[in-house]
Design a protein around this nucleic acid. Sequence first.
RNA 1: GCCUUGGUAGCUCAGUCGGUAGAGCAGCAGACUGAAAAUCUGCGUGUCGGUGGUUCGAUUCCGCCCUGAGGCA
Length: 283
Amino acid sequence: MKVNFVIGATASGKSGYAVNLAKKLSTEVVGADSVQIYREFNIGSAKIKAEEMCGVRHHLIDILDPECPFSVMDYQIEAKSAISDIARRCGEVVVCGGTGFYINSLVFELDELPSADAAIRARLECMESEELVDFARAAGMKLEGLDIKNKRRLIRAVEVFELTGKELGSFRSLPHTDIEPVFHYLRAERSFLYERINARVEQMIDCGLVAETESILKKYGASPQALGSIGYRQACEYLNGECNLEVMTENIKQATRNYAKRQETWFRRYLREFPADVNFINI
RNA sequence: GCCUUGGUAGCUCAGUCGGUAGAGCAGCAGACUGAAAAUCUGCGUGUCGGUGGUUCGAUUCCGCCCUGAGGCA
């Protein structure tokens, strides 16, 4: 099954491009964005507005309440089902988003790993990285190939080992799914992209990012995982009195630029595996 | 005009009891299997403000000049 993926760094103009492409192909759009999944995270996630959809139906945007946990596996299940439904009705499919990890789950199968286990994570979270390494060794786990300085990954690896008795690396099979991707990669000079990001952050703040964050905090507390994402995290710091508005603005711009760079690193490497299936669009 | 204090990496600053210098951030490059807008890794030559002097050797000590900040008149 052929699927169009509209990808690129944040603020590269994916949403608008995807709407146009979907209109041309008489089809619908599936989001691939880990924050836009959530209702109420609108301004800070640069979620497409109803009027900007121009009548094109969008899937996997606004499907969850803020307090619901969500992971790539959940994404894969939901997105695959939406994709086959759209393919059956419209023929073509457009997926659009900047979460490379989610895109990946549609192109390569995820191995049958256990899901996150809150109790195990809570227990491991209390340890320092070095303690975790000793703990894993003592449990008989092999550590080669593991990024032992990355606590979050280390915890995941130990979690998988405790639940299955096998190393995370031993699951690595990653077969292709039945999706044949065609990538539309939006790209720009780094400095130009950074200017667009700076301008968009100013816009988000003018449009009420702080008020949006405050309202989410009021309704759900600080626990929603998306509150840790760019924009919301800094707005929380501001609301906690940790910085003033100007510092918050600069911090959001900075974090967004850093993120855009990480996205480009991901996509650059990723697209090397599909040299014949990439349509480069310079913005 | 005088006094004090600063001028070192793109930015904020450390340091060299005289042997030409290093952190954080930025920037760049990279990793990525159920938290991924997350998490983590690697990369540091710059007339040490200018110019004279002392010295084998000065960014470091001394003189003068330029310049920022504060104070006294």
